[in-house]
Structure formats: C-alpha cells, structure tokens
Design a protein around this nucleic acid. Sequence first.
RNA 1: GCCGCAGUAGCUCAGCUGGUAGAGCAACGCAUUCGUAAUGCGUGGGUCGGGGGUUCAAGUCCCUCCUGCGGCACCA
Length: 655
Amino acid sequence: MVAITLPDGSQRQFDGPVSGLDIARDIGPGLAKAALACTVDGEMWDLTRPIERDASVSLVTAKDEAGLELIRHDAAHVMAEAVQELYPGTQVTIGPAIETGFYYDFARNEPFTPDDLGKIEARMRDIVARDEAIVREVWDRDEAIAHFQEIGEQYKAEIIADLPAGEPITVYRQGAWKDLCRGPHLPSTGRLGTAFKLTKLAGAYWRGDARNAQLQRIYGTAWATDKQLKEYLHMLEEAEKRDHRRLGREMGLFHLQEEAQGAVFWHPKGWTLYRTVQTYMRRRLEDAGYVEVNTPSVVDRALWERSGHWAKFRENMFTTQTDDERVMALKPMNCPGHVQIFRQGIKSYRDLPLRMAEFGSCHRNEASGALHGLMRVRAFVQDDAHIFCTEDQIVSETKLFCDLLKSVYRDLGFESVTVKFSDRPEVRAGADETWDKAEEALKAATNAAGLDWTLNPGEGAFYGPKLEFVLRDAIGRDWQCGTLQVDFVLPDRLDAEYVGEDGAKHRPVMLHRAILGTFERFLGILIENTAGRFPLWLAPVQAVVATITGEADDYVREVAAALGRAGLKVETDLRNEKINYKVREHSHAKIPVIVVVGKREAEERTVALRRLGGSSQEVLALDDALNTLRMQALAPDLARLASESEGADQRDQVA
RNA sequence: GCCGCAGUAGCUCAGCUGGUAGAGCAACGCAUUCGUAAUGCGUGGGUCGGGGGUUCAAGUCCCUCCUGCGGCACCA
C-alpha cells in the first residue's frame, strides 16, 4: 500500500507503486490531461515515474511557474533533437530554461545562420506533432561516460565525469533521440504545445569562461499558451519603442558617433535634462551635509601606482605620454584625488565624517563589445562621493546614505530597489584581516539600515566589499546604479590620517558611494522608464505655446515670457500651420503641456492647457495657469519645501 | 575582446541572378490664417561605412579594416 497525501490534506491509498499520472487520473480526467509533472515530497518528478513509498504529492500543470519551466526546458530538448536531426555531427552541451524561454549551446564547426532558425523551428513542430514519449533511464556512471564518448558527445562525457559521486546519472529518451539530463521532463513531446519561437543566435563560451571554446547558442522563447507568446512578442515590440537609443535620436537628446566611441554628444535638450538631474542631486547632497570638490582628469602614473589602480585596473585605463616621457592616465575613478584633498592640512576627528562629493568625469577603456548606448560608455560622470569617517561611524553613515538613496530614487520615479552584497574578490588589495573587518562592518550597517540583500560572492571592489543597488528598467533588464563600498585599503596606501581624541594619528575609513552611479547610464534608464514622457519637472521643454491664428502672436509671446519668468522651459510655435498639425507634432515630441492660444484667449487673457496623453483641454485665466504650472514644475524636493512653508504660513495665520 | 548579423538620403526601408540609385516621412519654397493628433502643390538632397581587388562595367562578387546590433566574456 502506498498512501499519497494531496496538497488539500486529503489522502488516497493505492495498492502498489503509483505514478503522478495515476494519481491525476484518480482525481479526474481533466487533471490527467493537464498534468505535466508532479512534486513528490517537494521534489520535482516525472509524471510517469513510479512512487513506491508514502509521500506528499502535488500535480504540476502549465498554470504553475514550475510547469512553465518544464515546458521551456523541454523546448530546449526538442530543439536539440531537431538540430541533431538536421545537422548530424553537432554536439549538444547544455540547454536550460531561462526567464522568458530557453537556450541550448551547440558545438558545431559550421555557423548556424538566421535561415537555419526557421528550419529548426519547423522541425521542432514536427517533433511535437510526433508526440514522442519521453522516458527516464538511470545509467551507470562509467558506462554513461564511455557511451557518450563513443558517440562523439565529448561535452556530455565531461559533464558526467564532473558530476558528484553520489549523483544518479539520468538519461532521457524521446523517440530515437536521447540526452543526459537531470530532468524532470514532460510525459511526451506533444505536451510542449505550439507556443514557442526561436529568437536569436549568439556565441557563448563553454562553461561561461572566455578561455574555453566558443559554442553556438540558440535562444528561444516558450509559453504555456499561444496567447502568452503573442503577449510576450508584443511586449518586446513595446520595449523596442522605448529603447533610449531610439528615443534619444527621435527626441534630439544626444547622439554617439564612431570617432568618439563610447562617449556621448549631448544635444541642447538632452543636456538640459542632464543639468536638471544634476542640479537636483547637488541640492540633495548639500542638504545631506556633503561638500563638493573637483579634481584633475589627467594624473601622473605615480599616483595610480600608489593607489593600486595601476596594478589592478591598468587594462581599463586610458593613458597618454607627454614629450618629457611622463606617463599620465585619465582618471577612471575619483577616489585618489579625493584623498589628496583630504591630506591637505591636518584633519581632526572633529572633521569626521567628512563627506566629499564630486561630479567626477571619468574614463574607462571598456571592452568594445560591452558598449551599449548610454548604459555602458567609456566617458562618464559619476555622482561620486567619499565619506571619510571613523570605524564607529560606518553604521550610521551607511544608514544615512541608504535613506538618501531611497528618497532620490523615489523622486526620480523608481520605487523598487534590490540590494546585493559583494564580498572579497580574488584579485584584491589589503590583508585578509582587513577584509574580515570591512565585510563585518558593512554587514552590520546593512542590517541596521533594515535592508534585505542577497550575497554576490567574490564581486567586491579590489579595495573593499560593496553594496550594489539595482534598478530594473522598462525592458526588464537590471542595472546597477547606486553603490556603497567600505574601504580600509586606500586611506592606508595613500596615507590619509586624522588626529583622534587621544591626540594620536589614525587612519580614517573611506566609504565610496554613488546614488545615480553615472549620469549617462541613469539618464538612459530614466528615458526607458518614462518612455520619453518625462514628468513635468524633468522635461527639457515643459510647455509649447502654440497659436491658432497669427492674430494671437503678440499675446503668445507675452504668455511665453510670463511662463519663462515663472521658471518654466517654454517654446513658442507661431508657424502658419493648423492647430491639429501643431498638437500632433508637439504630442509626438512628448511635450508635457501644450498651451493653445487663439483669438478668444487673446481677448479674454486666458490660455487653453492640453496635457500630454489627454484629449481634453482646460481653459484657465493666465495668472491661474502660471501659478499652477509653476508649482507643478517644481522638483520634488523643492515641492516638499514649498508645501512645508505653505503649512507654516497657514499655522502663522492661525496663531 | 569572442561568435553571429548588419551598414543605401536626416529617419524607416526598397534596389532579383553585376549594366552606373528609388519610396514614404522629414527638410526647403509657394499658396493657405485653418479651434485641439497629418492642408495642398512644388524643389533640393546619396563618393550606397572606409580601403583594396575581380570585371568593359560593382550598391550588387571577393579580401580587409571600421562602426553598429544581438548574445557571450567583462562591468572597481
């Protein structure tokens, strides 16, 4: 007898070994049809694998996250079968399910072409139509290795040889084809359905290591239903429309060109946006007790040797040699410069924490393949700062920083932030005891700030552990923006010191920190997140005043001038065009407010406001419109100040 | 940096097996003064990414370099 407990707590008795499919049939034919796999005491099992002991079982269908993952994993297998049928001699390696689909890495001398994708996909649909049963087998380890070597599957043989000793070696057959796989799998290829599509070809290194052979990866997407697939493809199209590179061109924000690879040409509108964000950040930093500095871009190699950058960061640095043979480097980071300022004069413990900020212009020679629009550039400006403090101040400074960071992200339209904790990397400066201390201190501070974090092992900076603050963009990509790094190494290498309460000299700790990360990347994320429809305070052109007839020209100039005095960035449109044409054009340009003025408005001294995305307009007296827009165009921090002082005024009146 | 793909007008793209470049939008000009997402007519615009080669002839074929795109690797 086998007793099976179902998720609702009910129990069913079976005479002997029973499979997930048997259980599903026992419950009902609908479930038997929908079931793809089952979990046995929490572990995923194939639907047909016999359960020989009492267990808790739940059935997995395409509606479950786990079911969808099975579908994707099977799609990878069916693709591998199709590829090996069509291109004999191709070796299979690994093919997992991923976030929106699957991939499989193949070893083949001939490159796959985009045309091949269509052929492979068609063959996949044949295999699905054949509805081949998928059968699990457990093999002997040595036999498995010998077998895969014999049939020329070197990579599979290598994988088996590397599996831990106790691990069962399972092979899945579907029709005449078989693959080493941990499983589980669908009962048959027909269950995969039709909601899949091959999407792209790419190179990928064996085991993710650039020193290994390069394999050919084929990506696909797979879903439970055709409707989901269609929705996903539609989402991709929408994402493409808000790609910051496209919007940057369409909206005239910036451009890139080959003579300055990885460096941005900011156009007037883009630069206005940039300056709006920068001015905002400058205010926030000042309010948070930072001082702003500026340090040299071209600095003698000697300083980078002392700081450790020459040893650890050399390959990413641009260098230049002067006629007298001095080697200079373009700064890739601002920290050594800030230590030089700290070292001027004698610092006392009373000066700490010293929060030193710089909108530091840095250059890094990033790999050509890494460059990506504004997101990954070679010339960029960080909202960088270094907090020189005592060890005792690490926790409170970290907490203050995290609060500031969250507030800034919220103001800029980002609510959810994830945090990664990166500990010591292989290539690093500083003694292990120093790292122990730094990691411990940062962990304590993170917990004190009430942050949830995930560990990112070995990803710290060469001088210290770090926190990474990650935002997700509109296309679902994660971008690291903010960072906070604890550094006991640089103050030592560059000989920073302060006089303590005890009158003796001490090393300060440096906290390297940035909120936006770089302006370039952050603005790219901002463009994609808003799809170019910036909130009023950020829009580089906040309002266009457009005439209906030439008779209103003088009044329009007056309105525009008044809006300008109220602090808005305004343009006028006096062209002899129909108002339909103007509204359409400015709407496409994503201007937040179109101020429409005709003969009637000019006579009545009113304006008609039309908001981006809306289809109606609001007619207001000019003075009212000026007040309303002036308040709405305030940066969030200034708006908070304004509402506070308004509250104070009201309290004064009451008193 | 590696693998694959691509580069034709400001933008989006067409140009079959080689015979000396085309559309829409944009721009410019003229007419139109028209009340909330495209007024009409007309005009100009291209060393077909750079270099080299094959050929009577190259946007088209070959080589090479550059840049971009998608991944991988990298991302202090």
